[in-house]
Nucleic acid binder design. Sequence first.
DNA 1: TATTGTTATACTCTATAACTATA
DNA 2: TATAGTTATAGAGTATAACAATA
Lengths: 164, 164
Amino acid sequence: MARKSGDRPFEAVGFLISQLGFQSSRRFADRLEPLDLNPRTFALLRHIEAAEGEPQHALAEALRVPPSRMVALLDELEERGLVERRPHPTDRRARSLYLTSAGRRLLEKAKKVAAEHEAELCADLSAAERKQLIALLGRIATGQGLAAGVHPAIGFKVVGPPGD
Amino acid sequence: MARKSGDRPFEAVGFLISQLGFQSSRRFADRLEPLDLNPRTFALLRHIEAAEGEPQHALAEALRVPPSRMVALLDELEERGLVERRPHPTDRRARSLYLTSAGRRLLEKAKKVAAEHEAELCADLSAAERKQLIALLGRIATGQGLAAGVHPAIGFKVVGPPGD
DNA sequence: TATTGTTATACTCTATAACTATA
DNA sequence: TATAGTTATAGAGTATAACAATA
């Protein structure tokens, strides 16, 4: 997308998406802070809710997080009483993951925050425009081979998955 | 955007943008690797090209990078013979930044890579759709108070500014 | 012999703040 | 006294690989 004169840069889809993605994640992280959550822990709670009883390695695999990292992540959530590691019914090596009721309550609050975040992001868009934007982005995501719901940065510090 | 039944998550603008932004940056980084560049160094070269002769602190300020970080960043580019630090004409504390001819040549190559990246990203979109997508994203970016061309993650490791 | 979860180690990147030389 | 650039230090977060228990 080279421009001939003036060379006005940075109007490409790639740059805009990256710029916005980072900004959106950061903003979402700020919003979650009062709940002592961040985009990553939020995503974790969501995935556990969606597949309760699964062992750690299944979660790690689904989210593409190294198992050794999952340990520390879950340690924190368990210490805070949001997640429970129970013995697996058939495999004594494994530990089944469950949300506690406190975890469930906090997750519901976080979902509200996510909805607010989404609303803010799309404040200047009509419902039809938002729908169209989602469709366009979804086509790019498919083209890029992205699995729906799996944020490729979930293993990283700053950029996490803004949700809902 | 809570859904009542099934609770199918992750179809929000926020999540898609963040997911795609990260993926796009990573993909762009892969593409730049053969040139021994990454999104951040690419952005640096671009900005220097756009404002040659400026001192370091101006660049640091424009890109929101701490001055101490700028040092290491520029050290690398200078050692590779891509950027030159010349004495400032009026302020002997400052150093004016210039692209070397090698830097200019490499930047041109990188711009081609960026154009390829953009083309890949938008492969499934018509020209009109791409234009519309850019317009929609641009409106969100404005609403979020993002300065055009300044990637908020330029100071970070993994996520850099995919360009053009 | 392979796998689940855990721990330990080393490495990379970062911000903070002290420092110098000019202004 | 303030500013441009630099350097040093300490801290956070990460992957890698070794480890114990179980399959």
